[in-house]
Amino acid sequence: MSHDPQNAVDYWKANLRLIVGCLIVWAFVSYGCGILFRPLLAGIHVGGTDLGFWFAQQGSILSFIVLIFFYAWRMNALDRKFGLHEE
């Protein structure tokens, strides 16, 4: 494990970029597709309902679950890159 202060700063910056990216995707899917863009998505049908309603009810939940796994995968990669992984 490295105790270099610059390594810690770089690790934290990479972590924050990942968190902000995940939050942007989450906000777009939850608020954008489920609320703001719902009228635009109303003409597209998925599973017997329109796409906007689907995003508001199920799509945002499924997207959030995918984001959790993506975040864990990327954090493991960052930990390995910065020498902080578990052995």
Results as ranks from 00 to 15, higher is better:
P5E: 07
D10G: 03
F69G: 11
C33Q: 09
I68D: 01
W54G: 08
V20K: 11
R74K: 15
G83Q: 06
A27I: 11
A8V: 02
V25H: 04
R17H: 12
F82K: 01
P5G: 03
L36K: 08
H45D: 04
R17F: 09
W73V: 04
L62P: 00
I68F: 08
H3G: 10
D79S: 05
S2R: 13
I24D: 01
E87Q: 08
H85Y: 01
V46R: 00
A27T: 12
I61H: 13
A42E: 14
S60F: 06
D79H: 13
A56D: 14
G43F: 07
F70T: 05
S30E: 06
I24M: 14
A56S: 13
V20S: 06
L40G: 05
A42H: 10
F28G: 15
V46F: 15
A27H: 04
G48F: 09
I24R: 00
F70V: 11
P39N: 09
I24G: 10
S2C: 04
I44C: 00
W54H: 07
W54Q: 06
A42V: 04
R80F: 05
M1D: 08
G52N: 08
D4A: 07
W73P: 00
I68A: 10
E86I: 02
R80T: 12
I65F: 06
K13H: 05
E86C: 00
L36F: 12
V20Y: 14
V9D: 09
I65P: 00
F28Q: 01
V66R: 01
L36D: 01
H85E: 14
I19F: 15
N15G: 11
L62G: 13
Y11W: 10
R38M: 05
Y71L: 08
A14F: 04
I68R: 02
